[in-house]
Structure formats: structure tokens, C-alpha cells
Design a protein around this nucleic acid. Structure first.
Lengths: 215, 215, 215, 215
DNA sequence: TATGAATGAGTTTTCATTCAT
DNA sequence: AATGAATGAAAACTCATTCAT
């Protein structure tokens, strides 16, 4: 039997264990949420224990996604360097986003299930809270952007939201499950199979250039 | 028992009936594929009959999506006017895309399930064929774009692919199921709830401007 | 694979098979409804097939109970002999009830779950329909009683309802699961363990005598 | 942490707290035993603590039922008035039973679960002890009845047992959960919905009259 | 061709009870 | 004695797909 998590720290640790197990399993079979039984097993816990920390399976994954969003936006916030010129700031932000996403492949995979699977099976209040967190973080990062680049109030948030849309769309367009990759190795498909990271960087560059260029 | 479809025309008609029923049902409850039983009922057929025309449920919807893609790219192709200047051509293309998507709400809803649901439950060969069709149409439209705007070979396709990514990401970011909309009516959420059509048009403008502006 | 039930007769037969399997299993472990898996297995069908004939597990058993009620009240109806005198009619009715219950041990066992298990887990409309059937049959039998014994309108139904209460209460008071019977074999318990059939007959006699004796 | 119950008095008090909490919760949702978690919470204790006083959840409720039986039979015993005539004695006993049951709605609700739920999940020895207590009390009250009414030895107990059967059967036949009541408000159902108290009194009158009338 | 009866895999969640602290 | 974290058994139901008729 597992050592009991009595105090708050131990409980946080246990919760983190579950999230970690869920993340690991999800990564090994993207596009499908692993069963609670597997998560519990991977975390070395009984099924029932998982439900002491999360009300439903989907809450595990929305928590994971929430965490990742937080990390991403924090990373973006840290990309700004006070003294740099605007162009460099933008480059830094884009580079930071690209790096983060590259290092966290589970983020976009999970995000791709948010619309069709997670939000579908989650009580509305939970989705609302998730969206609220997201909105707050997005707004904060947007304000930082406004200040740094001297943008009109709210414009930074708008840019981030549109960038996010571009990112998630690009992922879903360019990510293929392993078995399909083999089938698409024919040159006929090369136009729809550019490397994700490069395409992401290039697309973001183009979008931000257009967004910051006076019409 | 329904009148039997003996010749090819009758078969095509029956197939179309099924697609039409599926489309209608899907529209009434986006984010979830209707069951085969309901599709069959809506088409006035028995469940088994549906399987004479489509090997799996997902094939129905991938066929629907394929059809829509074809229509969209055809519409884009028709947007070009030989004599117009480049800027106007771009405007026309964007306007055509926005209009098409506005008139075909099922397209993006269905597209949003492609990554997580459709491709998941489809034999690889079927996905491959779908992707092949898509690639061909995209390439053709891209070539037209190259010619019209005097772009480097392949650049038009690239622009279209990136635009598509932006569009699908934007949809998933801004579309909310009805019950959630009520919960997000608070002004706190206004930044993540701009009207889709406006946001789409503005984002595409920005992206294309950036893409066509020399770095 | 089982032969398919195409026409209505075959379907009725299949439904009856399921009911029969459920009855048999229930009898072998009263006080607990068998699982659908076991019922299906006992009927030689797949689980899903059971659900083609009954919407929920409880509906199987309420159907069984409904059937038994119908049989019991039919039996009572048949107990009347046109030419007999009142006292004999009453004796005949009581004897018929006692005999029926003796021959159908599953009836009272199941009835004992109606209040606490069946009605609990059944949609209200189903319970309503069941009660409606019951009321109708009870009323019909009651009217027959009124006519035969020259009772005031409605009195026969009342007598039947009260008799039913006495019967079901007696069963729950005197029926013990096998393992408990051994433990209660001590003479100390003899007062609470008279043979059910005798006690039932005697109690009904007393009740009806009192009910038909002017105060 | 709650103050520890060291001496016997304190322990008895804690036990009583648990019973009281269980009774209150059960009353608010008849037909279903409240969970141990809720009972513990309502008693201001931890779940584990409940198990220091009762071996299983059902033991809590069988203890409650035992208590109620004791009270009922005590009440019956107190109904006898030395100098009254037989008929009045009987009336007094019936009236006392009706009053007690009217004042203690949890008794019959709980009793209705005894056969199907409580005895099911209880170790046989516990059931045996419960039955033994019941038998003793019943016998005592029965003897009192024998003496008072000049009955043959054992007859009083028999009358009480049969009355109890009538009572519990009547309750289960006439008690409906709130949502069902609305559905049964149609006059079509009036025959199966007489007021419990009236029906109880009338039925008991009839039964006792019959039982005390020479055949 | 058309039908629709039959199949059966697959998974979440609750909650009484235990036992480490 | 008290706590409450951990356990894990248990089962209903859906629905895509098959195939006998």
C-alpha cells in the first residue's frame, strides 16, 4: 500500500504523480485519453485513489492542459527583454513559443482534443473556470506585449489569441500518427508534410510581420 | 422496404441521400457524430443498408468533408479575376473563403473532428486517399495563385495551407457550444469571444499581408 | 449465433425466454437481482440482445412481476362459482390465492424488492404504467367480488388491496434465507417461524371474517 | 479532532450521536440508506470513527430498527388498562400502534428495507441477535395480551405478528416517493392511494375483529 | 439489394471498509 | 480513540458492425 499523503504538500505531490502518469501515457498514444485504470496503475495507485484527486478523467487532462498553458504564457512573459528593440522582442517571443511547443509535444496533442473531447465531457463550470484562467493569463501576457511594443490596449491579447489559433491549426494539419506517416512518405504528399517546427516558425513570422505592418 | 437501387445512378442517389441525412444530423448537434442508426432512419433506410454504401461511419463524414474541401477550393479558384491587380486578387480570395465558411458552418465543425475523431477510426488507406485528394486540390489552387500573383512555385500552396491552419485553429478557439456561451457571457470573457467571421477576416488579412510583404 | 426473431411471434418468444431465464436465476438467489450478463448467458444470448427487448435490467423484473400479478388476479377471478353461497366463495378465493402463491415462490420474493429496489431504479413513467395495470386488474377483480358477494361498490377492491398487504407483509416476516434458517432453528425462535402457507391461510381467514362481519 | 470518548458513558453518547445522525439522514431520503461518509459528517466524526462503534453500515440501521421495535412494543404494553373491558383494550392497542407509527415515519421506511437490504448485508449472527430481541419483546407483549384478553397461550403473540405483517405490507403498498405521487394524482389511481393512517386503522380493526370472533 | 436482429468489447465511477499515522 | 487516505470490486449500457433471412 502506498504511503499516505497526510499533509498538503504530500497531497500536492500525489496529485502531481497522477498528472505525470497521465501525461506519460497520453504521449505514448496521442489522440486518445488513456483509461483511468491505466493512469492509476502507472501512478502506482488504486483506481479509487485517482478519484480522490480528480472528479473525472477529463479533469485530469484539463488540469494538465491548464498547467501547460500557464507554462507557455509564463515562458512568453519571460521572453521580453526590457532594453531590446521591438523587432527583437517579437523575434524573442516567437522563438520562445516555438521552443516551448517543441519541448512539450503533449501540449498541442492534448489541446487538439480540447475542442472535441475534453470540453464535451466536462461539466460547464469546470470548462468555465479553465477558460477564465486562460483568459486571465492571456490578458496579462497581452498587456505586457502592449507595454513592450507600444501597442494599443488589448492588441497584444489579440495577437496572442490569433497566434494560438495559428499554432493549434498548424499542429492538427501537420501532425500525423506514426502508421499514417509511412503511408504519406510518397513525394506526392510532401506539400502537406513540411516539418512542424519550421513551418510553425515561418508562419508565425509571417503573421506577426503582417500584424505589425501598417496596412 | 425501399425501392432497390440497381443502376449506378440510383446508387449514387442513395449515397447522396445518406450523406445529406448525415450532414443534417451533424449540424443539429455539432461536436458529435450522429449514430448510424439515426443516419439510417433520417435517410429512410435500414442500418445495414448504410453499410452497403460506406464501410464505416467515419467514411460517411470523411466523404462529407472531402466534398466540402472540394467546394471551398473550387470557390477559391473562381475568386480570381484575370485582369485584377494582385492586391485585389488577395482580397477576393480572402472574401471568398470567409463567405464560404460562413455559409457552410458544418465544414469547420466537421473539420474540427477530423484530427481527433475521424482519422482515428478510419483505415489508413482511406485517410491516405482523402489526403491525396486534398493535396491535389490544394496544389491546383496553389498553382493558380502562383500564376496570378506571380509567386515562386509552391508558394501559393504554402499560403493556402497556412491559411487553412489559421482558419481551423480560429474556429476551435472561438466556437462554443450553446450552453457554454451563456456561461461565458460575462465581460470577463469578451477577449476570447470576438465574432468568428470578423476575427477570421482580420486574421487572414494580417497573415496574407505579412506573407506577401518582403521581410 | 442464435436464430433471429423476425416476426412478432418469434420476438415474443425471445422476450419470454429472457423473462424465463431471469426468473430462474432470481429464484436461485432471491433478495438480489441477477446481473444482465448472467441473464443473457442463461438465455443463450448476448448482453446487447437483452437490451433489444428491455430498456433496463429492472424492466425485466417489473415485467415479470406484472405478469405474475396478472396471473394471480386471473386465478382469483376464476375462483368464483356462480351458484355458490358467499361463504364458500370467500373460501374459494382464499384457497386460490394461497395455492397460487405457494406455486409461485418467485412472486413474493420479487414483490418484496418492488418497494426498495425496483421502483427505486425505474423511470417514473414505467412505474406509473405498472401501477396502472395493477389498478385496473385489481378493480376488475374487485368488481367481480362486489357482484358475487353483494358488496358495496369498491369494497371488493379494498378487500383485495388489504389482503395483498397482509400477504406481502407476512412473506417478508416469515421468509428467511437458507443460512439464517439454520441459525433460527432453536425453539426460542419458533414463534416467529410458523410455516408460511398455514400462517397465510389462517391470517387471510381471520381478516376476511372480520371484514365481512358487521361491526 | 473530536474529544475522545474514554469512559463508557461517553462511548454510549457517541454511539447515540451516530444513530441520531443516521436517523435524520435516512428520514430525508427514505428508501435508501445514507452513505457512511454522510453519516460521519452529520455526526461530526470521521468515517473511520463510525467503524469503531458499528462493524458495518447496516448495523447502524438494524440498531435503529431494534430501538424502534422496542419502543413500539413498549408503547403497546402501556396501552393496556387493567380495569377496561376486552373490546376497549383492543381499541386501545390498535390506537396506540397507529399513533406510534404515525409519529415515527422512519420506522416503517426502515422496516421496508429490512428484508431486502439490511438482512442482506449483515452477518448472520447479528441478524440472529436482532431476531432474538424481537422475539422476546413480541412474546412478552403477547403474554400481556393473553392475560388481558384471556386468550390461549401464544395467541397474543400470533395476533401481534400478524398485525405487524399487515402493517408493513400496508406501508409498502401505500407509500409512494414524492415524484411518483404527482404522477399518481390522477383519479384512476385513487383506489390504490387511500391515506395510510386511515387505511391502517381500518385494516387493523377488521383483522382483530375477525381474529377475536369465533369462527 | 435491403433488412434489422444479434453481437460483445470496453470503461467509468461509487462507496463500504481497512489501516497507516 | 480518532482520523481520513487508500483500496478495489462490481456491473450496466451503448453502439458500430455483422450476417442470417
Amino acid at each position: 500500500m502506498t504511503r499516505r499523503a497526510r499533509d498538503d504538500d504530500a497531497k500536492q505531490a500525489r496529485r502531481a504523480d497522477i498528472l505525470q502518469a497521465a501525461r506519460r501515457l497520453f504521449l505514448s498514444d496521442e489522440r486518445q485519453l488513456p483509461s483511468v485504470a491505466r493512469i492509476a496503475e502507472a501512478a502506482g495507485l488504486a483506481k479509487g485513489t485517482v478519484y480522490l484527486y480528480f472528479a473525472t478523467k477529463e479533469e485530469i487532462f484539463i488540469a494538465l492542459l491548464d498547467e501547460e498553458f500557464s507554462n507557455l504564457l509564463t515562458a512568453i512573459g519571460e521572453a521580453f527583454k526590457p532594453s531590446a528593440v521591438a523587432t527583437e522582442q517579437v523575434q524573442a517571443v516567437i522563438a520562445r513559443m516555438v521552443d516551448y511547443l517543441d519541448e512539450h509535444p503533449e501540449f498541442l496533442s492534448l489541446d487538439a482534443l480540447a475542442y472535441s473531447v475534453l470540453e464535451q465531457n466536462l461539466p460547464e463550470q469546470v470548462v468555465r473556470t479553465f477558460k477564465l484562467n486562460l483568459t486571465r493569463r492571456l490578458t496579462l501576457a497581452g498587456q505586457l506585449l502592449d507595454a513592450t511594443l507600444g501597442l494599443q490596449a488589448g492588441r497584444g491579447t489579440q495577437l496572442l489569441l490569433r497566434s494560438y489559433a495559428l499554432i493549434r491549426g498548424l499542429w492538427q494539419t501537420l501532425d500525423y500518427p506514426a502508421p499514417l506517416q509511412a503511408l504519406l512518405s510518397d513525394p506526392a504528399f510532401s506539400v502537406i508534410r513540411p516539418p512542424f517546427r519550421d513551418e510553425l516558425a515561418a508562419s508565425l513570422q509571417e503573421y506577426w510581420r503582417g500584424a505589425l505592418t501598417p496596412a
